Amino acid sequence: MADMTYNQQQPESIVSLKRNPSRPREIFNKVMTILSGACIGITLIPLFAVLIYVFIKGLSRLNLDLFTKLPPAAGQTTGGIANAILGTIMVVAIASLIAVPFGVLAAVYLSEFSDEETARPIRFATNVLSGVPSIIAGVFAYSLLVLSMGKFSAFAGGVALAVLMLPTIVRTTDEALQIVPRDIRWASVGVGASNYQTVLQIVLPAALPGIITGITLAIARAAGETAPLLFTVVYSNNWPRGPFAPTVPSLAYLVYEFARSFDIVLQEFAWAGSLVLVLLVLITSILSRWATSQKQF
């Protein structure tokens, strides 16, 4: 009898795992899920609106001539922006040659060789520098190089862009190095390697995907900057002549100049230049995502 009573009462003690849609907690979860989805949609609408609008406006001039010819003169209807593309590559290359070595070495010092008291204010200064408006970098390069050299140049523009690239490279490289487990460093030192050998042959290769990500993001930002170039270079519709020539064409500057023109043809080329810049940022973002997917830690 006792067993029968236990068996009869046992199902009554089982707790139901089914969700009750009318419970306040379930209602709150549904409301917050809907609000989160709405916020994502609101965030994506401006992004896709800009991309679609730039694509539609710039598609009419997207052809081979765009990448091989000079901008059209007054009265012409055909041409390209090849000079601005080459000028942008030259200025960004100068900025990268300056920012990448200094940024990576600074991050290595912060992560591997400095103590916390020294690293904390440097990291804080890096965060502050990353929030400085780009026009300040242009004024800095103008005062430091343009006034002292007595002329505008692509080198001055590269220095201004390097100032903007440095914080991104330092921060991402520092974070990538800190992600590498300490056990790897201890194991390397334990087999007789010096700190220099450990950093150069063990830590840096392990953190390389994260470092590449930071570099590509910094390059993408530098390629689209206009304000620093307003103070450091003079735009020209001719081919770039060298790093110290006073006239240097660039994509961002071309878009700025042509968009202000009353000529419909030049405005179309401004949209085409904007589309090329968007594609450049898209490619660098894809490369950074690919590099991130190769991370080991």
Rank of each mutant, 00 (worst) to 15 (best):
R221W: 11
Q197N: 12
V159C: 05
Q10R: 14
A220W: 01
G210W: 04
V91C: 10
N195P: 12
I184Q: 13
I212V: 14
A272T: 00
L105Q: 14
L64P: 02
T216N: 10
T126M: 14
L266I: 10
A137S: 13
I202N: 11
F155L: 11
N195Y: 15
P24Y: 01
G273P: 00
W271K: 00
L217H: 03
M4K: 12
I14M: 13
F124N: 10
D174L: 13
F48Q: 07
L166K: 00
A176L: 06
W271I: 01
V265H: 10
N237Y: 10
L164P: 02
L282N: 06
A218R: 06
A272E: 02
G80V: 06
Y53G: 03
L254Y: 06
N29A: 13
I34P: 00
G273I: 08
R221E: 11
V234H: 07
M1T: 12
A176F: 04
A272D: 00
S134I: 12
Q294N: 11
I40D: 05
L17N: 09
I98H: 00
N63P: 01
Q9F: 08
F244Q: 09
G190L: 06
A252M: 05
Y253H: 12
S250A: 12
Q178S: 13
G192F: 07
N127K: 14
I56Y: 14
T126L: 11
Q267W: 09
V276M: 01
G190K: 08
L70F: 06
E26A: 14
G138I: 03
I89V: 15
P72T: 09
G131H: 09
G80Q: 02
S96C: 06
L275R: 01
W239R: 10
S96G: 07
N29L: 14
A207D: 07
I169P: 03
D174E: 15
S188I: 10
V50I: 14
I179F: 05
P246W: 08
I215F: 00
D174H: 15
L44A: 07
F55D: 09
A107L: 11
Y256H: 07
E225L: 07
P21A: 10
I211R: 00
K295H: 11
I45H: 10
W290R: 04
V100S: 02
R241P: 02
S134K: 04
L277R: 02
V92P: 00
P240N: 03
A207Q: 06
G41L: 13
S274R: 02
